[in-house]
């Protein structure tokens, strides 16, 4: 494995059909945790399970099609929005899908599919990147601070979309956030990471109330842990 040890003593459960938010001070290893789930990085030890199967036993390419990911920035490919949405599907030259339908799923006008992705606002582009992940019909969606580059209005739209996807189709979502008000709006459950260790998992209300038996969690909720 390359570089320093970033995560240690991680024991996190992500219940099916829920939105689990990963929070923690910067440098806590939140993004690293997400990348260990779809194996963009290889854990030196330990195991990630997907629906009971160790992910190390799943072909990484297959695994990443079953686990979608949305990044801090959209990073769209292709000359049209349609190309961008269907990128993952076309990698295998497999089944056809309707880009317009996928755009509707993320609250965008289907007629946008002919446009150059770069002509869209960053908020729209980010929703296209969600549609691109949905095109592969994933079991789990990883979201790595998906609203950190968006303005307030665009941020709200992505948050609403996140909740909708979860409620409408029961999509399991693991979302990294640095923003407690966002956690309050979208999370079902919260996982706190500090210096690469998981401090615990709580229901959203319990965690945000600060009435938890974990000193670091209390300090984090009160903004004393940066």
């Amino acid at each position: 494995m390359d570089g320093a040890e970033i995560l240690k003593g991680i024991d996190v459960r992500v219940p099916e059909g829920e939105i689990t938010c990963v929070v923690g001070p910067s440098g806590a290893g939140k993004s690293t945790l997400l990348r260990a789930v779809n194996r963009l990085i290889e854990p030196t030890e330990g195991e990630v399970y997907l629906a009971g199967t160790p992910t190390s036993e799943i072909d990484p390419l297959e695994l990443r099609r079953r686990i979608g990911m949305v990044f801090q920035l959209p990073a769209l490919f292709g000359e049209t929005v349609e190309d961008a949405v269907l990128y993952g599907l076309r990698l295998r030259g497999g089944k056809k899908a309707d880009a317009g339908e996928l755009l509707e799923k993320v609250g965008l006008d289907p007629s946008l599919k002919e446009r150059d992705p770069q002509d869209l606002s960053v908020g729209q582009q980010q929703r296209v990147s969600v549609a691109r992940a949905l095109a592969l019909d994933p079991e789990v969606l990883l979201m790595d601070e998906p609203t950190s580059s968006l303005d307030e209005a665009a941020r709200r739209r992505v948050e609403d979309l996140t909740q909708e996807l979860n409620e409408r189709s029961g999509l399991t979502i693991l979302l990294v956030s640095h923003d407690l008000s966002q956690v309050e709006r979208v999370a079902d459950r919260v996982v706190l990471l500090v210096e690469g260790r998981s401090e615990g998992e709580w229901g959203k209300e319990e965690f945000l109330s600060g009435k938890v038996d974990n000193e670091k969690a209390k300090r984090f909720v009160h903004g004393e842990l940066e």
Binding site: L40, L61, R64, M69, F71, L91, R92, R132
Partner: peptide
């Protein structure tokens, strides 16, 4: 790096 990771995360091979 972000673009490369975004492609990998969609099931692209290193080459793709």
């Amino acid at each position: 790096r972000l673009k490369v990771e975004a492609a990998l995360a969609l099931g692209a091979t290193s080459r793709q």
